[in-house]
Design a protein around this nucleic acid. Sequence first.
DNA 1: AGGATGACGGGAG
DNA 2: ACTCCCGCCATCC
Length: 112
Amino acid sequence: MQTDAAITAILACVRRIPAGRVSSYGEIAARAGIKGRARMVGRMLGLAPEDTLPWHRVLKSDGRIAFPVGSKAFKQQSRLLKGEGVVVKAGRVDLAIFGWAREQSLDELLWG
DNA sequence: AGGATGACGGGAG
DNA sequence: ACTCCCGCCATCC
């Protein structure tokens, strides 16, 4: 079982991902202070009501959708991402372009 | 109690 | 790019 703090942190981080950008299970875990427990992040997203957070912006560390290709969930996630301008090709997103971390560093660059 | 199973990650070959 | 393999950890047989 997990501490409520960890659960809260995970959900908060996911909600902080900007529309049109994506993150990864591992990155969320790290930001939530439970580095290494990416699996738990996935479980939390599965437990939380679908409309309460932008779960579709979370991908595997290599930029691929975590669901089986062709599955219902796979298609929906792909559709939602494309719906906000993210390029999804063969179930994969280029993190170098749409990755959340990239924006973080860009902000640092622009705003110090 | 022990093994299998994930919405994972990273390294090795 | 792809396959294995192991670390990870809550759950579920």
